[in-house]
Structures are given as structure tokens and as C-alpha cells.
């Protein structure tokens, strides 16, 4: 029965409809031209982003701490700069992590829309 109905439906398609479908095909192709096919490794990409965020946060504190320690030793202001720069390093790491996530989510919005 299902086999019967399908071809009959196709016969009902008028020339105008076919033209519109062809037109749509063309427009779809046009729209897809710029974007690469969605990456198959999106799960790994997510893991990659998670890992990147983690490293970014740790390294922020580390670099801030190192800069503070170094400047303190140089200027003799221990421990003021160490404490300040650890906090600022944490903020900077957070900023980098935020940018990593933003870049990733922009990429997801751009790539994964057609077909998911």
C-alpha cells in the first residue's frame, strides 16, 4: 500500500513544483558552499575544549604567580605583587578560558546547523 501511494504522489508534482524544488536545491548548494562539512570528531573537539579550558585556568594562576614572585624578588615588595598577580592571573586565565569557549561555540553555530 505504501508502495502504491508514493509514486502516485510523485506524479502529482507539477512542473512548477519541480522548478521550485530545483531552485531550492540550487539555493541550498549556494548556502552550503562556504561552510565545510560538519566535523565528525565533535565529541573529541568538546573534550579538547574542556582540556583547553582546564589548562588555561591552571596556567593563568601559574604565570601570574611566577610574574609576581619574579617582580617581588626584583623590586623587594614581597608578597604584595605575588598575591595581586596570582589573582590577576586567575582572572586572565578565566578570560582566556572564556574566549576558548566562545570561539568553540561560535564554530559550533557556524558548522553544525545544516543537518546537525
Amino acid at each position: 500500500m505504501g508502495d502504491d501511494r508514493f509514486p502516485s504522489k510523485q506524479r502529482d508534482v507539477t512542473d512548477g513544483d519541480r522548478k521550485r524544488l530545483d531552485d531550492l536545491d540550487g539555493r541550498l548548494r549556494e548556502a552550503r558552499k562556504g561552510s565545510e562539512p560538519p566535523a565528525r570528531v565533535s565529541n573529541q573537539r568538546e573534550l579538547g575544549v574542556a582540556y583547553r579550558v582546564m589548562v588555561e585556568m591552571f596556567v593563568g594562576v601559574g604565570v601570574g604567580g611566577f610574574l609576581g614572585w619574579w617582580l617581588d624578588a626584583w623590586l623587594g615588595t614581597a608578597p604584595i605583587l605575588l598575591v595581586t598577580l596570582i589573582l590577576l592571573g586567575f582572572a586572565a586565565g578565566g578570560l582566556n578560558a572564556y574566549r576558548a569557549i566562545r570561539t568553540y561555540s561560535e564554530g559550533v553555530e557556524r558548522n553544525d546547523r545544516p543537518g546537525g
Binding site: E56, G62, V63, G64, L67, G89, A91, A92, G93, N96
Partner: peptide, 11 residues
């Protein structure tokens, strides 16, 4: 911003 720039090579 400057610290976040300096972090880049390390991370």
C-alpha cells in the same frame, strides 16, 4: 589583558 597575552605561549 596583558597577562592573558603572556599566558598564551605557556598554555
Amino acid at each position: 589583558e596583558v597577562i592573558s597575552y603572556l599566558i598564551r605561549p605557556v598554555s
